[in-house]
Design a binder for these strands. Structure first.
Lengths: 149, 149
DNA sequence: TTCTTAAATAAGAATAATTCTTATTTAAGT
DNA sequence: ACTTAAATAAGAATTATTCTTATTTAAGAA
């Protein structure tokens, strides 16, 4: 955990080293993001910013958040793409998700099944589901990337 | 793990006990769901079914999958609602998600941080992220439900 | 078996989230 | 100040999901 001024400093350096421009939009979006604890959507950030910066477009917020993930100053909370995914497998299991092709595989692991919910969480939530969510690139997509130069 | 005939039998019983009608659409969707290992979207199931049952509507597939989750014969793979959620917190942490109001809280837990990736997974995937995803109902939403009668 | 009725469905409109296209603007190095 | 590739704004397009309403049907009752 570090203070916000320091994070912003590092953000600016990151833009430098990654060779992307430090625009007022990007700075505002970054500030909004790190000031929020609510894991905001693009739309949510857009509405907050639109007060101070009325000409910004929602598309820019989307693109910018994507860029932030790419350069490693933000992440997208776990999710499985834009569509809901369903399964009829009600056995206790976990998931690994290829962020490239979207494939989800089931993971069976006894250690994962035994995870305990921390007391400070179970005090505040009635927990309905515990799952270990792994994200990565599947072998097939790795190969495709290799051949891509 | 049980065979499909048995699952379908149990599905029919569940419809009975839950008092929902056993329609041809529901049966087809259920069969399609348990025959698939790909954690399909509503759209995906719709296209598979539309061959055998050309008059089915996509909306029915959506509603039906929702119903299946409610009666406990299917689940929606972990996700955080219809919108992407972002965060600037790059420290190692985990999430608990209220499925009612959508709130996400960060969870810090040393045990969660030490999870190992099973070999059969790391052989097939380059893992980029490991997160424990908890789902439940937050205290506030629990209270609101109590007062709802 | 036929009748009844609440539940379920189909169709299409509506809404919501995200991405694309294109013309214009601008950050940042020269 | 000049140049230029990158970034942005605006609006259209696409994709996912939900809503509305009229019709159909499963399943229990007669």
């Amino acid at each position: 955990m570090m203070n916000k001024e320091r994070k912003i400093e590092l953000f600016k350096e990151k833009c430098q080293t990654k060779g992307i421009k430090l625009t007022p939009q990007r700075l505002l979006i970054y500030e909004e993001l790190i000031n929020s604890t609510e894991h905001p959507t693009a739309e949510r950030i857009y509405s907050s910013i639109t007060q101070k910066f009325p000409t910004i477009s929602l598309d820019t917020v989307h693109r910018t958040l994507e860029t932030f993930c790419t350069i490693g100053v933000a992440t997208m909370a776990e999710g499985l793409g834009n569509s809901k995914r369903f399964e009829g497998n009600m056995d206790n299991h976990h998931h690994v998700h290829c962020v490239q092709c979207g494939m989800i595989h089931d993971v069976y692991d006894a250690n994962y099944d035994q995870l305990l919910v921390p007391p400070q969480v179970s005090q505040e939530f009635k927990i309905l589901k515990k799952i270990v969510h792994l994200e990565g690139i599947c072998r097939k997509c790795q190969t495709e990337y290799e051949n891509m130069d």
